[in-house]
Amino acid sequence: MDQLYGIFLYAVFLLTMGGIYAVLALGLNIQWGFTGLFNAGVGGFFAIGAYVSAILTSAASARHLGGYDLPVPAGICAAMIASALVAWGIGRICIRLRSDYLAIATLGIAEILRLVLKNEIWATNGARGISRIPKPFEHVAEPWNQVGMLLLVFAIVLVLYVLLERARRSPWGRVMAAIRENEDAARAAGKDVERLRIEAFILGGALMGLGGALMAHHIKFIEPNVAEPVSATFLVWVMLVIGGSGNNRGAIFGAILVWTIWSATEILTTRLPSEWATKAAYLRIFLVGLALQIILQKFPEGIFRERRFQTSAASVHPPPFNRENTS
């Protein structure tokens, strides 16, 4: 009985984290899946969201900026606004760049943001991080505290899904697809391509900030490491590509599937004798890579394909995006 209860609680943790990644993947889906913007700086927006919400909601501390004691929802809203503003600034400068150049620019900017957060010690406590970030439902008895957090995350994912599906079907969503498929044609049709691309960039950035804020409240502690590229940028890319870019359901499913593979493989490797433990951790990363390769080989366009507005033989699919495992 204890064992079943334990597995239930672990599933709650697993899905909470998967849900937070789903928010990030939905944000990236707006940028890459809808509009074709290659943002390789997910971690930067994630970090802004995490830090803004952490600073606004945590108790006063001599080590970092804070003591505003705002309620968590206010912190989360501020996190989205801050990330959106940063995305707007970056978009104004970089959005004209073609996809691969945009990738290089955003990758660089995300690293700059992370290093600023690491070195502006007066505000962020540098590498030591911000501790004691409030968590929704934390004063409720276990397991309802963890279940409450899970329901909150899933409610947010659901609301985002409904809104983004509406956006995707709307004229706005169709223009985005047009820009992705053929920018010149969209421009010739009288669309303000630059402005629309910035809109997608800002909206995606705001969702990444939301994901960062949720992560900060979930783990109650944030440090610059949390936004390092492997687990904050490339993992999100893997999730979206495996789930199926351009498809909101794919983004959510991909996030939960990849996080489950990422996390649950350890349950297998801990069955090995303890002397092997240090080696088994690397074996696990190998298993994760292998699983991702198999999925990508089997579903080159992601598990959920993008649903087209009309299916004609002439419609061009985005090229399959096959990336080496990032670990």
Binding site: G6, Y10, F13, L14, G129, N225, T270, A281, R284
Partner: peptide, 21 residues
Amino acid sequence: ASDSQCDPKAAVDAGAKLVNV
């Protein structure tokens, strides 16, 4: 053994597995 990866995200996940599973 459980791998906390020197990263709070991974550590929360590792801890959840140890304590619950």
